[in-house]
Simulated assay, not measured.
Amino acid sequence: MSPVEIAEYLHLPEQNKWSGILLLDGKYLNRHMVLLLAVDYRTQDVVSWRVAENESQDNYKQLITDVQNCGYIIKALISDGGTGIRALTQKKKPSFIRIGSRPYPRPGVSPAKEQTVFLSGVPHQWCIVHAQRELLKYVRTKAKKEEREKLTLLVNQILFSSTLIRAEKVRKKLNTYGYINYSEAAKRLTNIISSYWKLLIAHYTVRVGRFKIPPTTNVIENIISNLNTRLKTMKKIKTKKSAEAICRLIVLKYRLKPLVDSQDRQKRNKSPLELSIKKKGKLNWYLFIKKSCR
């Protein structure tokens, strides 16, 4: 059974306990295929999945379409900030015009069409751990040796500040440091952080119900590590059809397996799929497995 068929069978489009906070990520099965996952934050349920060739915007669009067909209402998005996912909520930034080039309108050349965003108005949080890796990689490769320690400290203070006000103060410090010390790396770093500022601070400002959205993708990373022991056996699989058949069973087993080690008492000894259903009752796992093997 596909995720959409499971959702329809359990009447999830009509009534469910999904939080609306969706986490997206991908796990490469081999060089040619990747398993794309969409996970609900509160129930830890894999709402939908898809085997694709890469983590492109089009493949994530198809995954989001499947998620919406399951009856899931997306209220916020959390991701590792990959370009394919980022394009779902952010407009592509225009390339800078070279000095001396003719601006629009040009004779005989129509202006570019206005960009449309697939998930317009949906808050998007870039995982601060992944953001830290990207920004510190820039510091290591582009900054001078004597300024790396200071820039690393400022980046960490911005990303892991306890409040938005503190994060903004440190961002101003970084900007001031760049101009006082004539640091091109600090100036460029300030521009990068400022251009993605909304993606970095969403966890301070966005609430879904009574809860703030998480700043990291830890939940989906833990699920991927849980699935990884079984996914390792798929490195030699060559066809997409075979990969989909195996992934269907692996993901279904995870959705039906009770969360024995959960620290949350309300989740303990309940499966992710069981947590997603509003009506109380036992799931017939044999039926799901039997239909999924067809």
Rank of each mutant, 00 (worst) to 15 (best):
Val117Phe: 04
Val139Pro: 02
Asn69His: 12
Arg98Asp: 07
His124Arg: 12
Glu134Phe: 09
Ile74Gln: 04
Met33Ile: 01
Ala112Lys: 15
Trp126Ser: 10
Gln62Lys: 14
Ala76Ile: 11
Ala52Lys: 01
Leu77Cys: 07
Val34Leu: 04
Leu63Asp: 02
Ile97Thr: 03
Tyr138His: 13
Tyr28Gln: 09
Ala131Asp: 04
Ile97Ala: 09
Val122Trp: 03
Leu88Met: 14
Gln62Met: 09
Gly84Cys: 04
Gly100Asn: 08
Val46Pro: 01
Gly81Asp: 05
Ile74Cys: 03
Asp58Gly: 00
Ile73His: 13
Val129Pro: 01
Thr116Ala: 05
Ala112Arg: 15
Ser120Lys: 12
Ser120His: 12
Pro123Arg: 09
Glu114Phe: 00
Thr83Lys: 15
Arg102Glu: 14
Leu136His: 13
Gln90Arg: 15
Lys27Phe: 00
Ser79Phe: 05
Thr116Tyr: 08
Ser79Val: 00
Thr116Cys: 02
Gln44Asp: 01
Leu29Cys: 02
Tyr138Cys: 05
Glu53Ile: 00
Ser101Tyr: 13
Tyr104Asp: 08
Pro111Ala: 08
Gly100Pro: 07
Cys127Phe: 08
Ile78Cys: 15
Ser56Gly: 08
Lys91Asn: 07
Asp58Asn: 13
Tyr104Ala: 14
Ile85Pro: 08
Gln62Tyr: 10
Gly81Ser: 06
Pro103Thr: 10
Gln90Pro: 00
Val129Phe: 13
Asp66Ala: 12
Val47Pro: 01
Lys92Asn: 11
Glu134Ala: 14
Gly121Arg: 02
Pro123Gly: 08
Ser79Gln: 05
